[in-house]
Design a protein around this nucleic acid. Sequence first.
RNA 1: GCGCCCUUAGCUCAGUUGGAUAGAGCGUCUGGCUACGAACCAGAAGGUCGGCAGUUCGAAUCUGUCAGGGCGCACCA
Length: 663
Amino acid sequence: MYGYLERVLAARIREFLRLRYGLELERVVLEQPPKVELGEYALPLAFELAKKLRQPPRKIAEEIVQGIGAVAGFSILEVAGAGYINARVDRGQMAHATAKNEQPRVEAHTGKILVEHSSINPNKAAHVGHLRNAILGDTFVRLLRYSGRTVDVQNYIDNTGVQVADVVVGFLALEPRSLAEIEQLTGQPRFDYYCWELYAKVSQWYTDKPENKSIRLKVLHEIEQGGNDSANLAELISTAVLRRHLETMDRLDIRYDFLPRESEILHLRFWDAAFQKLKASGVLYLESQGKNKGCWVMRRAGTAKAAGQNQGAELGEISEDDQKVIVRSNGTVGYVGKDIAYHLWKFGLLGRDFGYQLFYQYPNQHQCWISADQGEPEHPHFGAVEVIYNVIDSRQAEAQNTVLEALRGLGYRQEADHYHHFSYEMVALTPRCAEELGYQLSEEEKSRSYIEVSGRKGFGVKADDLLDSLIASAAREVDSRHPELSPSERGLIAKQIAIGALRYFMLKYTKSSIIAFDFKDALSFEGETGPYVQYAIVRATNIFRKGGLDPDVAASELSGQLSPEALDAFLSAETANEIWELWLAASKTAYVVDQSIVTTEPAHLAKHAFQLAQRFNAFYHRYPILAERDESRKNFLLVTAAVVRRELIRVLAVMGIEAPHAM
RNA sequence: GCGCCCUUAGCUCAGUUGGAUAGAGCGUCUGGCUACGAACCAGAAGGUCGGCAGUUCGAAUCUGUCAGGGCGCACCA
């Protein structure tokens, strides 16, 4: 409702300015006054117009307020301060609509959206950094779906790169085993942990003796080639680790629709199709001199063209430093080239498609498909979407932008505009956390605010380990507080709390903030945390349980007995501002969801969830509802609790967090 | 060297498109459980928003510059 009324007011103001002053404003700035006593919306509009109209702001504001007349949903517009226009809503009406769960929709979008996230190398266990990626991505998917969009979730699998090759080398050179033995190993519960260690060992082996790296190159070529022992081993390992990743993420309620793999991008020759287009359009050209002689290159994103150059197609136009090699002099294509081809496929511009095979059936029956050279005849359709979001850490910004520039260079302007690099910062560890994990730090490292994780060194917090300790920690609390519940009930609650804590922790920081991970912070269930919000919901639930009511139907049934006028009487009283602010916050779900999508910033949603819970906790403490003597007031307070509870559950659901029955 | 990001309370972070008195959590100190369960609430202390200059009626927010920190600039992915 909050966002809806904002749009109503903005549209009306814009219309008035057009008719009265002949002004066409692109955007009308609306904000919330510092205190709710001043109104629900504030317009600093008159300050902006003062210069254009050559009149003092205060006078303009008064003119607007007088001229605009009544606005539906609002009780009054008034001038305040040096020229603010403050708008007060009709509290009763707005609360009534909120209680009845009325959600005015804006126009429905039809185009499909593709969100790609996770994309973990399938050579070792997932760690905290991967969790941030997956939780950001999954939450963004939920945000889009909540606002009515159709979304495909993809997880790109680089199963032919050096990282997988290194584990293959480990099995071939360091811990030789038969294929049957390795196959048996892949069936172990946490095969990805085994690979984690092995990968670190191989990396150390290279460091000790750099000449060992020659094996890596040989294995890498064999894997890319396909149809040999190395390739078969890589397939076996990467598929097993991939399954483990799906299981780990499933613990957090994160699921995928499609897993495109690099092996198919190679085998199905996506690059050949892309290469033709890139050559024809002049995005790529063959360098004939210098260090990149014999390579097909394009301009690196972010490098400026010298004056007088157009597309950069002619020889020698791009200086060596500004060149990005797409095809090596030996004729093989690099990562960026494959990525360009893959993105042409995403937008349906490549003219080729994957084969599709059903790969994984989740316990909840959701199906996850994987790319295949020859797929099944019947399969869902992926790709050819309108908008894409790639959840990839900020270190790959330049590579992402180079792909984007290639699309632009090919003339796909609209697609380029719908290409979003959902960029976020990494998760590092605090020095204290690193020491807890048993790592020797130098004095210099101890003084730093964070230490970067390193898969190569086997240095990091594994995702499953973190989840395990969160669940164990939550279980201790639940067990001591609820000995009367069955072990399975307690287990479920502990799991919900653990996931709530973890997901909230990863979402409360803005994307541009580097998270310095520490067990103490992540294991906290107090203050600005997921469990704090969950606890507010449980408190609301308890009111209804003690009162013998069903909280889920209370909002709709009880609000039916309360007219807008009756609600207004409760909410417009001098002393009602605190409760009204709670209602106002509860009416903002759709508004905050939209804002989080537009800014690609799920942290807004997390902050909002916390603030709403905070207001509710204050309300809970101040108004003992069940002890209220006045029946109609008690009814009103119950509706308040029911509405806030409903919105809290809704907001948490968008964050992928469940509300426990008890805590 | 070039590009991108960051610098706000003791610590960790919010602060929408510039707007009314810069907020929260943690930590510290003080209070509150006969329960709609305190995983909570109330209160206190704590800030020249890295420095300087500029634009503006108005700057934590925009521009320039300096300082400090991070990341990226492979015929790796």
